[in-house]
């Protein structure tokens, strides 16, 4: 399998906090790549640097054969990276289908004058956008909610709507930031099937997740960050027995007490256990 995204020595500092230092990894086409680490490890910062929300202080991404640096967020989307957000960020006052239509922007043209003059091309394009958006809503199981405002949807459906919106940009890489956060068991297992189906359709998935059962079960490989540094990478079975990972999550010796207070153990982990070993 060829490499879709490679990161070389990515660093990002916020004032005195080194959020990312020299992070390196590469994601192969068609895999589900997990990204885990205690809170504050730099996972979301990595997403933000990847999608040009922040500029990296140092290092570079190579995506689909070309570098990503210096692009605006919408250009990153055009290159084929779409994301969701840890704290849901839908357009609350747009309907579900309008939210998805937004994602189609990057794959269609027709500008101001087209919109004002209602040219034939514009109208045809808008009909196509709407049809595609409806198909995507159906794909994530929200066909019945198309005309509801995003803010009226229950939480689990909002999460799936974010995924549909991201898929509308026709990404090569779908980056999911804690998609299962706050979901109940049924919603989580639906989500798991959805992510597998997305991968089955040829989209590479980068997954930040605190639900160890989900991320260890889904991912082909997992990258572990702690304090902005890469501490382990590999297949889930290997990562979960890595001593450095166990230390990061559970602490050792004197650091264990402070760390355990600052960082509640992730789902499935308890003192003396290894992340994900519970399942």
């Amino acid at each position: 399998m060829s490499v879709l995204l490679s990161a070389t020595r990515i660093s990002k500092r916020f004032g005195g906090v080194q959020a990312l230092s020299d992070v390196e990894f590469s994601i192969r086409r068609g895999e589900i790549y997990g990204l885990i680490g205690p809170n504050g490890a730099g996972k979301t910062t990595l997403f933000n640097v990847l999608t040009s929300v922040y500029a990296a202080d140092d290092g570079r991404f190579e995506f689909d054969g070309a570098p990503l640096s210096g692009l605006k967020p919408h250009q990153v989307a055009a290159r084929g990276i779409a994301r969701t957000f840890q704290n849901i960020r839908l357009f609350a006052n747009l309907t579900a289908i309008e939210n998805v239509m937004i994602g189609r922007h990057v794959r269609t043209r027709a500008g101001v004058f087209g919109a004002m003059l209602r040219t034939r091309a514009t109208r045809a394009e808008e009909a196509a956008i709407e049809a595609r958006a409806a198909a995507l809503l159906d794909y994530v199981g929200l066909a019945a909610r198309a005309d509801d405002l995003a803010r009226q949807l229950p939480y689990g459906e909002q999460r799936r709507l974010e995924i549909a919106r991201a898929l509308a940009t026709e990404p090569l890489l779908l980056a999911l930031d804690e998609p299962a956060a706050g979901m109940n068991a049924t919603e989580t297992s639906d989500l798991r099937r959805l992510i597998e189906r997305i991968r089955g359709d040829g989209i590479t998935v980068l997954l930040i997740e605190h639900d160890m059962k989900l991320v260890m079960g889904l991912s082909d490989r997992v990258l572990v960050l702690d304090y902005g540094r890469r501490i382990a990478e590999g297949p889930p079975a290997q990562v979960r027995t890595d001593p450095k990972v166990i230390e990061a999550y559970l602490g050792t010796g004197a650091t264990s007490a402070t760390r355990a207070h600052a960082e509640p153990a992730p789902a499935g982990a308890r003192p003396g256990a290894v992340p994900g070993a519970a399942n």
């Binding site: 999608t51 929300v53 605006k72 989307a77 960020r89 309008e98 922007h105």
Partner: peptide
């Protein structure tokens, strides 16, 4: 229209609109 949806999206969450592929500067212009 598509432009209208983009305008409303941009007015609600400019940063997210950008990440979803809307050219914010064009919409504002």
């Amino acid at each position: 229209t598509k432009l209208g949806v983009a305008m409303r999206a941009t007015s609600q969450r400019q940063d997210v609109a950008g990440l979803m592929g809307i050219d914010i500067n064009r919409v504002i212009s």
